[in-house]
């Protein structure tokens, strides 16, 4: 059986909120290392990969591998019934028909309990090759969100160019063009504002802004976001969570003109 207790319901609320517009029905794969989710969007352009390590829960118990097939719309409805600060416990039997969610308020004695019916989801699992990326940019997640939002007003695509000069986000649209240039930057007092660029070779890739704007819904999960790029491979956008847990998005590049 599975029993996983989260100190704050907020974490799961934010994760589900960040991915629910990209993917609808997903398997939450539970085993003794934690709860993982991998799902591709319908157009096969973006992939969500979530890992909530067992250390992110206290306690965490999962004796056998269990796949919980959940509709994220249904999960959202139920998670809305939880206060952000509620303690959340996920429970399921070994061959479950439902997943049980218990929300406990630390301040009052209120305990609420919900069951969500599970679905049989036959999902293709993708092998993601270990990649030594040519460029890794770590930057404030709010800054990345702003760049994506600003440029999406002008164009459908953004080119991300990384060189010794820094990183440049460029777009061209019907009304004109825009570009934002960032350099490495260290703020001793506010390290969450740091921009770190780790480059082994110059990179230039083009991506759909619609998807990037969507990924940025995860900005509330982490102050910083990591962008990993290599020429001609999908972009990795990573929001690191506590205890080595993470929410990652992969986005296939655009090619040619």
């Amino acid at each position: 059986m599975l029993e996983a207790r989260l100190e704050q319901a907020n974490l799961l609320k934010k994760v589900v909120d960040a991915i629910k517009d990209l993917v609808q029905d997903c398997n939450f794969d539970c085993n003794d290392s934690g709860i993982a989710l991998q799902a591709m969007d319908n157009s096969h352009v973006a992939l969500v990969s979530m890992m909530l390590k067992s250390e992110s829960f206290s306690p965490f118990r999962c004796d056998r591998n269990i796949a919980l097939g959940i509709n994220l719309g249904s999960l959202t409805k139920v998670l809305r019934c939880a206060q952000n600060e509620d303690i959340l416990t996920l429970k399921a039997e070994d061959a479950p028909d439902v997943v049980n969610l218990v929300f406990e308020s630390a301040e009052t004695d209120r305990i609420s309990e919900y069951d969500i019916k599970l679905m049989d989801i036959d999902q293709e699992h993708l092998g993601i090759p270990e990649t030594e990326y040519a460029a890794t940019i770590t930057m404030p997640s709010a800054e990345f969100q702003r760049i994506c939002r600003d440029l999406s007003a002008l164009s459908e695509s953004v080119s991300i160019e990384c060189s010794k000069e820094g990183v440049k986000f460029n777009c061209q649209g019907d009304i004109g063009s825009g570009s934002i240039h960032l350099r490495s930057h260290t703020n001793v007092d506010k390290p969450e504002l740091n921009v770190e660029i780790d480059l082994t070779e110059p990179v230039s890739l083009t991506f759909s802004l619609k998807y990037l704007v969507n990924f940025c819904k995860a900005s509330g999960l982490s102050n910083q976001v990591k962008l990993c790029l290599s020429n001609e491979v999908p972009l990795l956008v990573e929001y690191a969570l506590s205890n080595n847990s993470y929410l990652r998005f992969y986005l296939a590049p655009k090619i040619g003109d």
Binding site: H44, L47, L126, G127, P129, A252, K254, G256
Partner: peptide, 14 residues
């Protein structure tokens, strides 16, 4: 307009 690649071209099903 640049063409959108499919993720399946990079990641294989397992």
């Amino acid at each position: 307009t640049p063409l959108q690649n499919d993720l399946g071209e990079f990641f294989t099903a397992i």
